[in-house]
Design a protein around this nucleic acid. Structure first.
Lengths: 141, 141
DNA sequence: AGACGTGTTGACTTTAACGTAAAAAGGCGG
DNA sequence: CCGCCTTTTTACGTTAAAGTCAACACGTCT
């Protein structure tokens, strides 16, 4: 079990550049310890990086991701702070649910396009008889 | 039933600026017709705009969105083109499914954080007895 | 005709998220 | 000790996606 990761190990694992990791550090998203000048990433840092990349895949900005990560480590004690935290959680959850709906809609549409394409493929293979005019433009509210 | 939308109608409906719509037009994402110089958006243009915004919410770039929209309108006839189209559809679907998984993971984590916060709230309300050391840092592979 | 609101075009600026290049500092094998 | 490699720091460049600003073109209300 390896205690620390070097920067290049992580860049290879996640297919990113050193520039990216240093940039994330400059933005306060990770804070690797140092041996002299050299950065040493703990397994904890590594999971934070995974969280960052996941956030990016979902289209969140680095600032938003930073907020979310800070939620994770937060143990603010005070009641007002907790209320605020709960609000932020609710907001994020709403965004995520919207994204879920967006994805499902998009998947359905992709299915439609694929079905149409496959139908045309079939026609081409069996020899073009007569072009069927089934063109679903899908114009809803 | 209104035949056309003006640019400001759409900016108000979707909460974007005129600059944005003109930019999308410059990128070839929409092509409103003109009455003189003025842009007139059809219901079809309007749905395209909805598609664009949905794509943005999912973190796709305008170029990616353009590709996807072009898939929709595509009836390329030729077999090679259709193969290529099917490949692209498969690729997009894979991305979307990954995003789905990412979202589900994130939702679970949000649930965790929320549960922790609510627990601390409860302690604060009933009067702090003794701080329970149940701190789930969640360090998985 | 004058003023007003709305729309258009063009140019310049901004912001996020890195890329790229230069120079110096360790560490390490021969 | 020397050369080589990785890492670091600093600084400037780039790209996508708009924002901002200025000036001009319409239709129209009065």
């Amino acid at each position: 079990m390896q205690r620390y990761f070097t920067i290049t190990q992580l860049t290879q694992e996640f297919d990113i550049t050193t520039r990216t990791l240093r940039f994330y550090e400059a933005q306060g998203l990770v804070s690797p310890t140092r041996r002299g000048r050299q950065r040493l990433y703990t397994p904890g840092d590594r999971t934070r990086i995974k969280l960052i990349l996941r956030g990016k895949r979902l289209g969140f900005s680095l600032n938003e991701i930073k907020e979310m990560i800070e939620m994770y480590g937060s143990a603010p004690g005070e009641a007002g702070q907790l209320r605020l935290l709960l609000d932020r959680i609710a907001a994020r959850r709403a965004e995520l649910l919207e994204k879920q709906r967006d994805i499902e809609l998009t998947l359905v549409e992709l299915d439609d396009v694929e079905a149409g394409a496959k139908a045309r493929m079939a026609v081409l293979e069996t020899g073009p008889g007569k072009t069927s005019g089934a063109d679903a433009a899908s114009e809803k509210s």
